[in-house]
């Protein structure tokens, strides 16, 4: 197992180098000079322009800029935001817990609902349940997040008044961000009702963010289950007279989980993409919105640093998924 983990970790290195190059190159490929964009309609004289170009190091050859960036990264320095003048690192870690908290809630929701839905659909193949669940999943998958989120807000917050419209916690609660995770911090604060308020604020964004992964997981579980259910050993199990719940739950589902876990792992990428819209609509102070704003503002250090950190996160998730394969299927870890 240790060798397996080490082997996986080694693949990190080339991926990391690749990501560094891509994140550096990506923003520079976009048209638009960051300094001109910064000056806007007001413009700037040539002298001032040159001064700023020098200050930000844009007059250096690209390779020199890359070298500066790379050496910075290796020393844990991702540079400073052009806009807020604060270290990218600080900004990322101030915002990331919010994204992580929302993503974890969303993925838990998606898994808890998606896997049972897929299993039920597979077992009832072709029947009403199957059709209903899979059409719902298709609708969920095709849902424009923006529209869906607003609809949820209008219905549940506006008309029914069940949930708050946006934000992470009621504004009347005010305490230190010890961990950055509102659920934990609200408990730590010891204030009456703070935790409940944080939970209420999480409901709608989690549902919205979970929608697409939920649909994908349900569909994947269904098709993996169908495949496994037609295997010989399932037939044998049936012939032996095992109870259906044992067949489906233990023998079939466990073997169907490999592709499902892959999909869950890949959903993390989707979650980050979905987070951009979800965070904007629900005024959720996470990294999705932060990245988009930075791209518009051509805030190079934030875009390249943020991309790099997100990529590392995705790599860590993928590694975890690989390790999970090993746990579920001994054949993989021995290979």
């Amino acid at each position: 197992m240790l060798r397996y983990i080490l082997g996986r970790l080694l693949t990190f290195i080339p991926t990391f180098i690749g990501v560094t190059i891509v994140s550096f190159g990506f923003i520079r490929v976009l048209p638009g000079d960051p300094i001109i964009v910064m000056a806007g309609e007001r413009g700037m004289d040539q002298e001032r322009y040159n001064e700023l170009m020098n200050q930000y190091g844009f007059n250096d050859p690209l390779l020199v800029q890359f070298w500066d960036y790379l050496t910075g990264v290796l020393q844990g320095d991702l540079g400073q935001s052009f806009v807020t003048k604060r270290p990218v690192w600080d900004e990322f870690f101030a915002l990331f817990p919010a994204t992580l908290e929302l993503s974890i809630c969303a993925i838990i929701l998606a898994v808890m609902l998606g896997i049972p839905a897929g299993v039920i659909a597979a077992v009832n193949r072709g029947k009403f349940f199957d059709r209903a669940l899979m059409s719902t999943a298709l609708v969920g998958y095709s849902m424009p997040i923006f529209w869906w989120a607003l609809l949820m807000i209008i219905v549940f917050s506006g008309t029914l008044g069940w949930t708050p419209v946006s934000g992470r916690i009621d504004l009347l609660y005010y305490f230190d961000n010890t961990t950055g995770f509102m659920l934990i911090d609200s408990l730590l604060s010891g204030q009456d009702g703070a935790f409940l308020s944080a939970v209420r604020h999480l409901i709608l964004p989690s549902i919205v963010l979970a929608t697409i992964p939920l649909a994908v997981i349900a569909r994947q579980t269904r098709s993996a289950m169908l495949e496994v259910l037609s295997e010989d050993y399932i037939r044998t199990a049936r012939a032996k007279g095992l109870r259906p719940i044992r067949i489906n739950g233990l023998h079939a589902l466990r073997n169907a989980m490999i592709p499902v876990i892959t999909v869950i792992g890949l959903s993390v990428g989707t979650l980050l993409a979905g987070a951009i819209l979800t965070e904007t609509i629900f005024s959720w102070p996470g990294i999705g919105k932060w990245m988009v704003d930075s791209i518009y503002r051509r805030d190079y250090p934030v875009v390249q640093g943020g991309l790099l950190l997100i990529a590392v996160m995705v790599m860590v998730v993928n590694l975890t998924v690989d390790l999970l394969y090993g746990l579920i299927n001994p054949k993989i870890r021995k290979r």
Binding site: L150, I153, I154, S157, G158, G161, P164, V165, S166, G167, L171, T280, I281, F282, S283, P285, K289
Partner: peptide, 17 residues
């Protein structure tokens, strides 16, 4: 209360937030 989306701001106003 930083609320980037205009429609959401309106909802918050209506909800008294």
């Amino acid at each position: 209360a930083i609320t980037p989306d205009a429609s959401v701001r309106y909802q918050k106003l209506q909800a008294g937030e």
